[in-house]
Every structure is written in structure tokens, then in C-alpha cells.
Design a protein around this nucleic acid. Structure first.
Lengths: 205, 205, 205, 205
DNA sequence: AATGAATGAGTCTTCATTCAT
DNA sequence: GATGAATGAAGACTCATTCAT
């Protein structure tokens, strides 16, 4: 661990401050609606100073993301390593991720899709309509799960949590397929997902 | 079902064509990097014509989304209704969603986060770095699952699918908490998720 | 006076209706903020129909103005001719012009300067400020006139009317000079104006 | 009088330059036919720079007007104050206004009505026709005044000047009535105007 | 090294005019 | 002759980036 000069230490501190400001601004407005001027103001540096630390807005965005991911990753690595049994490791892993998210809401908000970021004052009605459609879709699933409770085939539990979990799985497989050429088609994954959802991953079920 | 005049039919057709073009353009570039001029060109109409059908770019975006959601929803409703058993319904549901996504890649791409939409020619290296971080994170999870195979506690299967599914569940609970005030904190959901992942939803496990 | 065919008569009627609508719309919003679509709607004709009667928006504007001027002129000609003495003629003339204006407010509004026509919701404060400056200017003049009352040199009367009249004379000489090359400079007209204002046009004063 | 920093002084200078350019461009083309790009070019600044000094085109317009008015007003105030007798004050006042107008032709042109501002290459014939109508109207008045010369009731003088003055008075009373609810109807002002025109404001006439 | 004023390319949106029906 | 949907040129305004101080 090299000892840093005062210059170097100050440089790092400023850089961190800018990254923090960027995270906050990007989280509130998304990439496209955030201006470099805002980030400058939030960080209490001049616009030009931002450009001394980062080549451009896009680089600032990427580096902020990468560093956050790094932090999450190293936290996970240490945390998970403290457990021995697989099931304990998994629980620990999920807990660390969630704790990280609760402690870095701004960062996670940056992942938001563009929709959430439209200025839409005028189109609030349309936005509400879209949200309503989404809820109807979720409700269809949770209603099906409630039927499973009635039918006696599913353990009684929170139907919303279960439907949320199922949707989460569907979404991620869809994304992966869309943005990764090599992935199998989602359709082929359907039985796997439903099977996992119903029987779980543990041997013996 | 009222019979539509030729005028009305033509109007609808044109509107559909614009919506299709918008879907395609928005999917490729995201909302902010798409220009109305591009949508006009793609749809083979003049710029001004777009504005005869939609008040502005934002409205075009929302309406495109809403109509797609409507279509998915009604397809689901009919499809799921044909089954009786809960587990069959769920499989059917997942299959319909996946079939819809495979048939509407453009639409689904629109949901993408802004990151995927940056012009980044310059910053491709950074983007790759970020993707690498993400894969390392996923790998940590799938490695843990592979340990579960070794340990004999988990049914042998595709570790990538399982880790993907787990991440999908974590993500969606995080999103819901971030964008919904009333939701319980993710941390409290950790045991539920891990339990579902391990034991499944079926009664008796 | 040729007798007109029905066709011809209908043509004239439609034309009048369009001109009337144009007058009303132009008066409310000025030339630049009026759209042909609005004039079409006001006149209850289609946009295309407007263009059957007038080559373009500008021509519609000019012809509307010209026809109104014609009407005023012929009204004046008949009215003034009924008097014999010059002073009666002048009074009659002023009265006819004023009656015409009161009966054709819309038309006269069209003469407005662009200032009155700005959309300025945002800039209302600035507009008010400008109006205030103008009033200060007028007040300076009427105060000077009031001093004349005190001094005993001016017949007691309405200082506002007198200052308004003076400003009206100054304005018109300025305009004429600005838009007519050949006119004498306003400066040379100053004594004439002040003399007329003080002594009037009648012989003997 | 605070001493200004170099920065502040430079800022003011640039601002003045933009205002001067705006005055010139607006004077030539009117508000609506002037583009911000033209003003930028005329002032030798970039478009964006204009927006650093003024929120938008409209604000630029208003502020330019207000500052000119301020200048005229303060010039008047000092100038008129140097005289004691009312009639001298009035003459001085008129002379200052006229001198100001001669020195600020651009500014005064800005007051122009929209008519003068139409692009009318195509419609020059119509514009000429309209101007002709206007002259006919003026001529009617000046002819009446000439009759007054013949009749011996009016002091011999320049009939054009007299008719111009009369029209100026009529116009301003009409404007004030149209744009000020509370004002008396023009018709009621007719005798006042004619009386002023004939007898002047001086006591004893 | 830090600053922030200046830059101008880029984009949404409007609206006069045309022309196929 | 009447219609009004389609057109696309034009213009206000924004904001990432530069560079002189």
C-alpha cells in the first residue's frame, strides 16, 4: 500500500465528490435529463473542473457505475466467504445485496428505464394509464397464484411476493436473451422457471 | 362491432404504421436518442404527419407502450383461461409472456435502461468493463450454487439459470421498493426469496 | 350596375364571410399569431377553400385592409360633402372616423404594433414595466400642461386630453419621417406642432 | 457610484452590444420576422451567448424597449427642467423627442405595425394599393383644410402638416380607447379635438 | 489546476401551402 | 368547387464541450 502524496490524496477526494454528486443527479433525473452543469453545482466544482477528472459526461456515468459495482462485489466476496453451507451463503448473499441497495438507493435508481425519467407533466395521465396496465398484468399473475392457494396445491403465503418473484425471473431471462445473442430462447426456459418456482432448487423436491 | 368508414380505416392503418416505426426506432436508440425525424423516415411519413396523429414525441412513446401492454394483457387473459390447474396456468402464462417477447423484441427493448442506449463509441472499453463487473457478480452467485451441487444440497442443474433466476428476483424486489414508498424493505424479503428459491412454492416442500 | 348570377352572388358572399373571419382573427392575435386554420374555422370553411379565394395569408390580410379602408373613405366622402363650412366639415370628418372606429374595433386593432401581440405570459412583468415607462412619459407631458394651467397661459381643460393630442401629433410626424424618405425632418416640424397646439389653426390667433 | 470590476464592465458591454444588434434587427424586420440567429450574427456572438444574457427572444425585445424608453425619459426630464415658461417647456419637449427619434430611428421603427413587416415581395402591388388608400384618406382631409384657406377661416399654412396633425390626434385617441377599457369613447372626444385643432390651447382664443 | 463564459450543432414543434379525393 | 390530410422548411432553445484567463 503506497503512501499517497497530499496532492494525490486531494485529487482522489475531489474525484470522489464528483462521483457522489453525479450519482445523486443521475439517480434523480436519469442520464439524459441530467446536465453537467447540475453535477458541477451539486459537487460545488466548476464545469471545467469536471472535465479535468472525466473525459466527458458518458465517462463520468460509466465510471460511477463501475466503482459502485466494484464496491458491491468486494463486499459480497468477503461477506459470503464467512459462511460454509450453500443455503447460508445464498441467504447471506441476498442480504448483502439488499443491504447494499438500501444504502445506495441513488445508485440503483440509475438503472431505471428511460420511461421513469420523462418530464411528463403534460402526459401524466398517459403515464398513469401505463402504470395501471402494468398492475393489471401483475394482478393476473397473483390471482392465478391465489387460485393455487384455494386449490391447495401451493403453500399459503403472500401472493404478491410470489407473483413479483415470478415476474422478476421472467424479466431477467427475457433481458438476457434480448441483449445476448448466444442465450437460449426464453421459450425454452419456461419449464425451468416454472419448475424452480414450484419445486425450488433443493434436492428431494 | 361498428363497421368503420374507409377514412377511419385508413386513419387507423397510418396510425399503426407510425406506432410500429416508433417502436422500432425507440428500441434501437431509446427515447432520448431517437428523433422524430427518424421515426418519420422509418414510417415513410413527413415529420408534420407524425404530429397529426400524436401531440408530441412523449405521447407517441407512451401510447406505443400502452397499446403493446394491452395486447400482451388480452393475449394472456385468453390463454391462461384455457387451463384449469394452477401449475398449468402458470406454465401457460410464462410461455405466453415469453412468446410475446420473442415476437416483440423491439417493444421489449424499449424497457432498457439508459445505459444500453449511450452512443458510446468512445467509451466502449468502459462499457465492456461494466459488463465484466456484472458478469463477475453473476459468477459469484453461480459459483455458490455450484458449491451447492457439490455439497449435494441442490438438485443438479444449470447453475447459470439458477443464478439468473435468483438475481431476477432480487432485482425486482429492489425496484419495487425503490419506486414504491409503501413496500417493505428488501432486507425483510431476503428469507422469503431464499426460501422460495430453495423450496419452491408447492405445498409439502 | 350589372346583375350578378347566383354563382357570382354566392361567391361574393363566401368571400365576405372569409374576410370577416380574417378581420376578427387578425384583430385578436395579430398577423403572425393568427393561423389560416383559425380563420378557416372561424369562417366555417375548409383551409383549402380559403386558398381558392385568396392566394395566401398575406393577400387575405391586405385585401381585408384595403376593403375596409375603401368603406371608410366612401363613408367619409358622402358625409363630409353634406357640410359647407370648413369647421363643420372637419368636425363631421372626425366624427365619422370615430364612429367608424367604434363600429369596426376589430379592424382597427389590426393596426396594432407587434408588442401587443406577444404571447407573453412569462414576460407579463416586463410588459407591465414597459407600459409603466410609457405612462411616465405621458405624465411628464401632462404635468407640463398642468403647469400651464397654473401659470394661466393655457385654457383650463383636461390635461390628459391635451397631452394625448400632443403625443399623437408627435408620433405621426415621426412615423411619416421614418417611413417616407422625402419628408422633412421632425425637428423642423417642432415649432409648427407647438404653434398649432398653442394657437390652433384658426386665423386671428 | 460603485466602481465595477473588469468582469462586470465586460458583461455590460457585451449586453449592450447584443441590445444594439437586437434593436437594429427588430427595426428592420419586426419581432416575428427577426430570428435569434440573425441577432447573434449581427452582434457577432453565438446563438447560445444571447441566451446567457436574455432568457428568450421576447425578453430581449422587452428589455431593449424598456432601456430605450428609460433613456428618452431621463433625457426629457433634464432637458425640460431647464425651461421655466410652459410654452418653452413644450417646445423643448417636442424638440427632445424629435431629436431622440432622429438619433434612434431603429428603435422607433420597432413600434411599427405588423403591416410594414410583411415579407411582401409578391404582394407589393397590394401594399401599394393600401398605401394609396391611406393617402386618399389624408388627401380628403388636407383638401378640406385647403378649403378652409380659401374660405379665409384658417391661417394659411401647410395643409399637409395640418391634416397630418389632425390624423395623429384622431389615431391616438382611437388607440387609447381600443386598448383602455376605462377611456371615454372617441366620439365624445371629437369636439375637443376639433376645438384644439382650430383654437389651440392658449387662453384667450 | 480551476474556472465558467462562449460556442453552435442538434432537435422538437409549428404552420403556410399543396393536391388527391 | 370544396375539402383537409400531408408536407417539410424554418426557427427557438438546450447543453456538452472548449479554452482563454
Amino acid at each position: 500500500m503506497k503512501k499517497l502524496s497530499r496532492k494525490e490524496r486531494e485529487y482522489r477526494t475531489r474525484r470522489e465528490e464528483i462521483l457522489k454528486a453525479a450519482e445523486s443527479v443521475f439517480a434523480q433525473k436519469g442520464f439524459h435529463n441530467s446536465t453537467v452543469a447540475e453535477i458541477a453545482k451539486e459537487s460545488e466544482f466548476a464545469i471545467g473542473t469536471i472535465y479535468q477528472f472525466f473525459k466527458n459526461k458518458e465517462e463520468l456515468y460509466y465510471i460511477m457505475m463501475i466503482e459502485k459495482f466494484d464496491l458491491l462485489y468486494s463486499t459480497l466476496l468477503t461477506g459470503v466467504g464467512k459462511n460454509i453451507k450453500c443455503s447460508e451463503k445464498l441467504l447471506c448473499l441476498v442480504e448483502i445485496v439488499f443491504a447494499f441497495i438500501e444504502g445506495n438507493v441513488d445508485f440503483f435508481k440509475v438503472f431505471t428505464w428511460e420511461l421513469n425519467v420523462l418530464n411528463s407533466n403534460m402526459n401524466n395521465r398517459l403515464k398513469d394509464q401505463l402504470v395501471a396496465k402494468h398492475f393489471a398484468y401483475i394482478k393476473l399473475i397473483s390471482d392465478t397464484i391465489k387460485e393455487g392457494f384455494q386449490e391447495g396445491v401451493l403453500k399459503k403465503g403472500n401472493a404478491d411476493d410470489l407473483s413479483t418473484a415470478l415476474v422478476g425471473m421472467m424479466n431477467i431471462f427475457s433481458f438476457n436473451w434480448i441483449y445476448n445473442q448466444r442465450q437460449d430462447s426464453p421459450k425454452s426456459k419456461a419449464p425451468i422457471i416454472v419448475n424452480l418456482f414450484l419445486n425450488g432448487a433443493i434436492r428431494g423436491n
